[in-house]
């Protein structure tokens, strides 16, 4: 079995995996980082989004071995101690989550969206969330949250 080594949330992580082990399985099962979720099996829902070397990707559509040597950020690594990342804070302030299952992926995608477009319009936000499905909120408050999060990230 291949050994993979990567930096996850700033810490070195290493384990033996099968070639077929998905990155999301590695994170959840080997590292116990269960904040990254699996909501589908066709790469549609985005519950599994993490950042690889600063880019948001679906960790269910990537092998753990493909992340060898990469720097991975998951939802668990966002907050600074007890202090939430401004995007996390914005989701809370705007009731941008209900059951919480899609939330980690939604937040990770939103941060990447804002990184590439610091002042997105409502339409750009809706387009930018095309790869993340939420069944609870109707997106109204998620869009509001991303807008507020973008403003807060600008500081």
């Amino acid at each position: 079995m291949p050994t993979v080594e990567m930096t996850v949330n700033g810490k070195r992580a290493s384990a033996q995996v099968e070639g077929r082990t998905l990155l999301v399985q590695f994170l959840r099962e080997k590292l116990g980082l269960t904040g990254t979720h699996i909501g589908c099996d066709t790469s549609q829902c985005g519950a599994c989004v993490v950042h690889i070397d600063g880019r948001a990707v679906k960790s269910c559509t990537m092998l753990a071995v493909q992340a060898n040597g990469a720097s991975v950020m998951t939802i668990e690594g966002l907050a600074n101690g007890e202090k939430l990342h401004p995007m996390q804070e914005a989701f809370r302030d705007n009731h941008g989550l209900q059951c919480g299952f899609c939330t980690p992926g939604m937040v990770m995608t939103a941060i990447d969206l804002v990184k590439n477009n610091p002042a997105p319009s409502e339409e750009e936000i809706r387009h930018g969330l095309e790869g993340n499905i939420c069944r609870c909120t109707g997106y109204h408050n998620i869009v509001k949250a991303v807008k507020a999060g973008a403003a807060a990230m600008k500081g």
């Binding site: 980082l33 269960t34 904040g35 990254t36 998951t74 939802i75 668990e76 966002l78 907050a79 939430l84 996390q88 989701f91 809370r92 989550l97 919480g100 299952f101 939330t103 980690p104 937040v107």
Partner: peptide
Amino acid sequence: EDYRFLTGQG
């Protein structure tokens, strides 16, 4: 409940 969901602690 949001803090735990937003930090992946659900």
